[in-house]
Amino acid sequence: MEVPDREARALLKLGLHLTDLDLVARAETPVADDDAEAMRVLAGRRRNGEPLARLVGRREFWSLDFTLAPETLVPRPETETLVEAVLALYPERHAPLRILDLGTGSGALLAALLSEYPSARGLGVDLSLGAARQARKNLVALGLGARSMVIVGCWAEALGGGFDLVVSNPPYIPSTDIAALDREVREHDPLLALDGGPRGLDAYRVLARALPGLLVPGGRAVLELGIGQEEDVAALLAAAGLPADGAARRDLAGIARAIVTGPARL
């Protein structure tokens, strides 16, 4: 949830096409009737549960700006825990990593990593054509287009190996929990990116089977977790020959959020 004052400021800028400077310099300027009506429409949409990021059409992640599409999740701060986990794994920022982002969505996770590793190259995969298109646009807009590709596919079905790092923020909400989600998420985020099956583990089963064939020896995977899923996901990874490298990294709320595999073997 955004801070109300910040939300009001953002809606004013959006509805009246103003900059931050305009809000100060034109504070006493009367609002035209048409503009007032536009503001009422925006305020009504927000009151009805449409997230501010959807109204604005943009969201910041890892200090980078991302344009959203209906097919993409709104990037969330807790996913930055995965970026932090990768930075701890690979402290050499000029490492020529080959990165795979499965379920790339807006491309936020892949773009954040490529911004931190200037010698890395990355591939994003998403089942949604709309999400893949938006991810590609975002990567190009951020100056990362030459070091990245985005394809449409079902997880890793069309891929060979050769990756040093695989990251993923898969759908992990149990199907029966969808109806109880906050309205902003339930009604405005794509169901494809939320619904993880009966126990929220369907995507992790697919990922656990695929990862050994995707990673080079010594390669790592970092996966986002839903609340309470660490033990189950760790068991799936261990059964696939990729046991977790210690406890999952916790987000700022103290929730186990990013599980990291140990180095892949031959």
Score class of each variant (00 low, 15 high):
residue 101 D to F: 04
residue 247 A to S: 15
residue 87 L to C: 14
residue 95 A to N: 05
residue 130 G to K: 14
residue 131 A to P: 13
residue 214 L to N: 09
residue 137 K to Q: 15
residue 110 L to N: 01
residue 266 L to P: 13
residue 36 A to Q: 14
residue 168 S to G: 04
residue 81 T to H: 00
residue 136 R to L: 11
residue 88 A to F: 03
residue 77 P to W: 01
residue 39 M to Y: 13
residue 81 T to D: 00
residue 109 L to C: 02
residue 127 L to A: 15
residue 149 M to H: 10
residue 129 L to S: 11
residue 129 L to R: 15
residue 41 V to C: 04
residue 174 P to M: 10
residue 93 R to I: 14
residue 100 L to D: 01
residue 76 R to L: 03
residue 27 A to P: 00
residue 257 R to F: 00
residue 203 A to S: 10
residue 36 A to T: 01
residue 252 L to K: 00
residue 7 E to D: 10
residue 12 L to P: 00
residue 68 L to G: 02
residue 242 L to F: 04
residue 129 L to E: 15
residue 47 R to V: 06
residue 70 P to N: 05
residue 219 G to V: 10
residue 100 L to P: 09
residue 153 G to S: 13
residue 265 R to A: 14
residue 164 D to M: 07
residue 189 D to K: 12
residue 240 A to I: 06
residue 108 A to C: 14
residue 50 E to V: 15
residue 173 I to D: 08
residue 92 E to P: 03
residue 101 D to C: 03
residue 27 A to S: 12
residue 154 C to E: 14
residue 266 L to A: 15
residue 121 R to E: 15
residue 199 R to N: 13
residue 75 P to K: 12
residue 105 G to Y: 01
residue 211 L to T: 05
residue 140 V to I: 14
residue 171 P to N: 05
residue 203 A to H: 05
residue 112 A to C: 06
residue 148 S to I: 09
residue 13 K to R: 15
residue 122 G to L: 08
residue 123 L to Q: 12
residue 50 E to T: 14
residue 79 T to Q: 07
residue 8 A to Y: 02
residue 116 E to T: 10
residue 256 A to K: 14
